[in-house]
């Protein structure tokens, strides 16, 4: 990670560097884990795993129904609209903050590691917290000129048990002008 000035991108502001390693945006999921979304996801991927469709299998293997592990991020994604909110809420706010703070209007997630811990169960209330791990020196890719950054999202249930960690590597960039 570096804050060294460059000729084409501004240096990383100090207030951004100060966020590295700090917990940000601790938030509760907007709703308890529900079976409907599990079936939606299984339907969208034609996933016939009996753990998610057959209660007897779920009872035998997992002591009752659980969510597909890869649905971890689903449980904290905000509703598209909710009463009283004037701005659209976005998941992974630390990522969108960096786009603004570094003046890099476009961004993609280039890699993502998910580590799965305790299973997520129907009725769980999942909360998340975001930690910025690093911001790179300026890089040039086929998309444009920008910086990579890494953000960890930790997920816990209502009993404070860790259910998973997602580590996102993103590339924020400016599109090449032709």
């Amino acid at each position: 990670m570096s804050g060294s000035p460059t000729t084409d991108l501004a240096a990383i502001p100090t207030f951004v560097l100060d966020k590295v390693g700090q917990v940000q945006y601790e938030e509760d999921g907007g709703f308890p884990v529900e079976h409907g979304y599990i079936w939606n996801t299984c339907a969208a991927t034609e996933n016939g795993n009996p753990l998610f469709w057959d209660e007897a299998v779920a009872d035998e293997l997992t002591d009752g129904p659980i969510a597909p592990p890869t649905m971890l991020s689903v449980w904290f994604r905000p509703h598209h609209w909710s009463p009283g909110r004037t701005e659209p809420a976005v998941p992974l706010q630390a990522h969108f903050d960096l786009k603004d703070d570094l003046d890099l209007p476009e961004a993609i997630i280039s890699s993502n590691t998910i580590t799965f811990h305790d299973p997520v169960r129907i009725g769980d209330r999942i909360r998340s917290r975001q930690v910025l791990r690093s911001v790179s020196d300026p890089k040039t890719t086929k998309l444009g000129r920008g910086r990579f950054w890494v953000i960890d999202v930790e997920y816990l249930n209502q009993d404070d048990a860790l259910v998973g960690v997602e580590s996102y590597t993103a590339f924020g960039y400016r599109r090449e002008t032709r």
């Binding site: 996933n47 016939g48 795993n49 890699s111 993502n112």
Partner: peptide, 27 residues
């Protein structure tokens, strides 16, 4: 959703006793 597709693919092979520990994606 890609993650969900990868999960489906792996657990089609393992059956329901397969339990994911870690996945690293590169897009």
């Amino acid at each position: 959703n890609q993650a969900a597709w990868f999960e489906r693919y792996v657990t089609d092979w393992t059956g329901p006793t397969g339990r994911l520990g870690r996945m690293t994606f590169r897009m």
